[in-house]
């Protein structure tokens, strides 16, 4: 089971990916749309469902897909998050590639029980007789423009605590999971982020170079669980400093886990507090 948290406000272009063959520059939303498009075209068992996905979804992620693949494969669900996820688990168990959209990550909590107690443990509790590995739950996280309550939180840490789930903040079907990407190389400090914070950190890199003459190495974590310790650790060993940026709350977040891991194993993390003071929202 995959939990894919994409960034609702990420209408900016993705960082360039090094791939072979023809490439097109897309926004993150377009890239997700494109990825689902490819899955639906290549996998006849694939279905997409969620609140208002049929007309294209509130973020236009599923635009044109119903027209292309029909109402029986791209369809609206009632406003019932528990139902959406549980339905997806059942569907995936029966062999279908199911893509369930939760319109905002903040809406996901009625489905929390299904994700934690059903989906993530399905393979284990059936002795590998069944599994729901074909289920992907997509949900936008982070601060959408002025979204306020029920539309702005970053609850990814809740799911990182659950064995059995792979969690990716941004994703392309071609990318390996659990592999971070060094976007910009530098020597003085390692900056780690995921989602919209990667864009923010890009600006930080430029600013730090111009104003402080500090050379930053920027890493897009890409997968939150399991996260790519090796890439991050290598970088931190080189730079000796780590700064992690995330939008989610300060306490017990992914930030604290990642930074403490680094501290524990590599004994380098003087940037930790800086990160929290400045970046935690």
């Amino acid at each position: 089971m995959w939990l894919s948290c994409y960034l609702s406000s990420a209408l900016r272009s993705c960082p360039c990916l090094i791939v072979t063959g023809e490439t097109t520059r897309m926004t993150l939303v377009q890239a997700i749309n494109n990825a689902i498009d490819i899955v639906l075209s290549k996998d006849p068992t694939a279905v997409l469902f969620g609140e208002d996905v049929a007309f294209g979804g509130v973020f236009r992620v599923s635009v044109n897909l119903r027209d292309r693949y029909g109402r029986d494969r791209v369809f609206n669900s009632p406003l019932s998050e528990q139902g959406i996820v549980a339905f997806g688990i059942g569907l995936a168990c029966a062999g279908a590639t199911s893509i369930a959209e939760i319109q905002f990550a903040d809406y996901i909590f009625p489905a929390f029980d299904q994700i934690v107690n059903e989906g993530s443990k399905f393979r284990y509790r059936t002795g590998n007789l069944f599994n729901c590995g074909k289920l992907t739950i997509r949900a936008p996280i982070g601060a959408v423009g002025h979204g306020a309550l029920y539309h702005s939180q970053s609850p990814e840490a809740f799911f990182a605590h659950i064995p059995g789930i792979k969690e990716v903040p941004t994703g392309d079907y071609e990318l390996p999971l659990s592999s971070a990407e060094v976007l910009i190389e530098g020597d003085d400090v390692t900056l780690v982020g995921w989602g919209t914070q990667v864009h923010v950190l890009r600006d930080v890199v430029t600013m730090a170079q111009e104003k402080l003459n500090v050379s930053c190495e920027l890493i897009d974590l890409r997968t939150i669980l399991p996260w790519d310790l090796e890439t991050v650790a290598k970088s931190v060993v080189k730079t000796g400093r780590l700064l992690i940026a995330h939008e989610a709350p300060y306490t017990y977040g992914i930030c604290s886990r990642n930074s403490s891991t680094n501290t524990g194993q590599y004994h380098v993390s003087p940037g930790e507090r800086l990160n929290r003071e400045i970046m935690s929202v």
Binding site: E51, D52, A54, N76, P78, L79, Q103
Partner: peptide
């Protein structure tokens, strides 16, 4: 309900 009519949701 949001953009989905009652007949399609209930």
């Amino acid at each position: 309900g949001m953009g989905t009519s009652v007949e399609r949701a209930s």
